[in-house]
Design a protein around this nucleic acid. Sequence first.
RNA 1: GUGGGUGUAGUUCAGUGGUUAGAGCGCCAGAUUGUGGCUCUGGAAGUCGUGGGUUCAACUCCCAUCACCCACC
Length: 381
Amino acid sequence: MNKPVTYELQHVCQQSGARAGLLTTPHGQIKTPVYMPVGTQAVVKAMTSPEMKALGAQILLSNTYHLNLRPGSQIIKAAGGLHRFMAWDLPILTDSGGFQVFSLAELNKITEEGVAFRNHLDGSALLMTPESSMQIQQDLGADIAMAFDVCSPYPCAYEDAKADMERTHRWAMRCKDAHKRPDQALFGIVQGAFYKDLRITSAQTLSQMDFPGYGIGGLSVGEPKDIMYEMLEALIPHLPVNKPRYLMGVGTPDCLLEGVLRGVDMFDCVLATRIARNGTVLTRHGRLVVRNARYKADFAPLEEGCDCYTCLHHSRAYVRHLINTGEITGGRLCSIHNLRYLTRLMEGARQAILEDRFLDYIKDFYALFDMRGAFNRGEDQ
RNA sequence: GUGGGUGUAGUUCAGUGGUUAGAGCGCCAGAUUGUGGCUCUGGAAGUCGUGGGUUCAACUCCCAUCACCCACC
């Protein structure tokens, strides 16, 4: 039986060691490194599928937990699967619900069997297990499903981190046993909080289970960036070279490039679309809060030279006006720009890797990008 | 012209003798990393229409005056 998702390592940058690859799925190929826009509720907020294609998105992420609550995985299955339901014929990856165990921690109880959630919509009880997550994800029918994991918080005591990691490994095996769909790949997820030895153990343990790809979970949960980079450097050498690595939830421009530098192939993040709806955009010069009064009469595009729809047609003053009057198109225009920005950042990274000049690419990025107030955390300040 | 009403932050309004006059909206700024987010947090902003008076103390009570609104001539 052919594997549903295969990874081909196309080139290793001689200057940096970063990777360029090709991910082949039932719904087409993905050139890596890649940023995956997030469409939690079977839609990238404010965007349509043709618009996502136009800005160069290769694959979208959607969410098991949310879609299972509404409209329900049976509805999406009846619609002919998630691709048809949301009219997106390129690849999709579904998150397992594991992150909701973390982010909705006050509303759930974790046992070895699974997680008892309080439904955040109506308060009703809901049990999610590795098996049920697999069932739901197979009903949704994405190209890539993620294992149901336990994401440790930051900070986290060693014994707790170890217990979360070991449970994640047991659940990964249960996910593998429960996963039957031949046209869908299942990725395992590395945990281990902020302890290098645990991260290495997790990478080795999951590698032995032979998944077609590996998520790196539990990072960008509030820790300083340096610590995240240390963890990546420790664990990635213990993942197989011929499988894709997906750093979950990471999405500031600098973190994307630093991740690529350390061997990551895939990223997803809500940041670009979330800040867009609140009037902040990303540019090569750093973040730009277009909502601010200084742009009231600024008729330049959001980012000079950007090829996105927004920058080709509209001014900062206009976008600011729409944001400040609460017009939904304001959030749309900022989303279009931010998604295009990150997509283009990754396209440029891939090209630089293929041409063995990725270190120069990063250097050029930092030379222009104003890091002051650029989503820093903790000790980064 | 007569009678009544209203004048407090940019705006709509609270505040009927007692620290440094408040709220919503607006304005300004900050936050946002596997989305419980048209969200969250903070800030600036008022000679209380004006001028007198009573009082230990006045946005508050009294007088005058100005502006606006309503009713009636």
